[in-house]
Simulated assay, not measured.
Amino acid sequence: MNSLELTKHIVKILDDKKADKIEAIKVRDLTIISDYFVIASANNSTHVKALVDEVEFKLKEIGRAPERVEGYQNANWIVLDYNDVIVHVFYEETRNYYNLEKLWADGEKLDITEMLK
């Protein structure tokens, strides 16, 4: 599964679990960190953890485990690092504060409506 296919799969998992404001940004041309960022929010820490748990569970089913997981204890901003795709799941207020979309505004924002079909 290439990085775009993985991104699409993650977006679908998050959408199925009722994540808010899902965005996918291609950052491959801007950084060596990753090819894509997937950003999503939830309105409470329980939902943040549930979203992350579901992504991890579904991707482990296809043989993909994250290299790192950061922020799980606090559940304000949890990062799943799949090397070519980095997933950021935020508590809504934390997302507004850090505003990653603005920080990575030079990246190519993908149309997730196409991914959800």
Rank of each mutant, 00 (worst) to 15 (best):
14 L>G: 08
91 Y>S: 04
21 K>H: 15
42 A>W: 03
112 I>Y: 07
30 L>N: 07
32 I>D: 13
102 K>V: 00
21 K>D: 15
10 I>D: 01
111 D>I: 03
110 L>I: 12
30 L>W: 11
91 Y>M: 08
100 L>A: 07
98 Y>E: 09
9 H>L: 12
8 K>I: 02
95 R>M: 07
87 V>A: 10
87 V>F: 08
110 L>C: 07
65 A>Y: 13
85 V>M: 01
104 W>H: 08
58 K>Y: 10
99 N>K: 09
28 R>D: 08
42 A>V: 01
6 L>I: 02
45 S>D: 12
69 V>I: 12
74 N>G: 14
95 R>F: 07
3 S>A: 10
57 F>K: 15
65 A>L: 14
30 L>H: 03
67 E>I: 14
117 K>G: 12
44 N>P: 05
55 V>W: 02
87 V>E: 15
65 A>G: 13
1 M>W: 02
7 T>P: 04
12 K>F: 11
98 Y>D: 10
54 E>T: 11
58 K>C: 04
57 F>E: 15
60 K>D: 15
3 S>V: 02
112 I>S: 05
99 N>S: 12
55 V>E: 05
96 N>V: 14
83 N>T: 12
82 Y>F: 13
87 V>M: 10
59 L>V: 00
88 H>D: 11
115 M>Q: 06
58 K>I: 07
31 T>P: 01
91 Y>R: 06
106 D>E: 14
58 K>L: 04
92 E>M: 10
22 I>W: 11
104 W>S: 04
58 K>E: 11
41 S>K: 09
28 R>S: 14
80 L>F: 10
81 D>K: 13
82 Y>T: 04
29 D>R: 06
65 A>I: 14
42 A>F: 00
20 D>G: 12
102 K>I: 00
24 A>C: 06
12 K>T: 12
98 Y>L: 09
50 A>S: 13
6 L>M: 12
98 Y>I: 06
17 K>H: 14
15 D>V: 00
77 W>R: 07
69 V>W: 09
83 N>L: 13
23 E>H: 08
55 V>C: 03
43 N>S: 09
65 A>W: 10
109 K>C: 00
59 L>F: 05
81 D>L: 09
67 E>K: 15
34 S>V: 00
83 N>H: 13
24 A>R: 00
45 S>G: 13
26 K>V: 04
96 N>P: 03
59 L>R: 06
62 I>C: 05
71 G>S: 04
71 G>C: 01
86 I>K: 01
25 I>L: 05
5 E>S: 14
6 L>R: 13
74 N>H: 11
105 A>T: 09
89 V>I: 14
104 W>R: 03
98 Y>V: 05
76 N>Q: 14
11 V>R: 11
51 L>R: 04
28 R>H: 10
45 S>Q: 15
79 V>A: 10
19 A>C: 07
44 N>W: 01
28 R>M: 08
61 E>W: 07
28 R>G: 05
46 T>D: 03
100 L>E: 08
58 K>D: 06
31 T>N: 02
4 L>I: 14
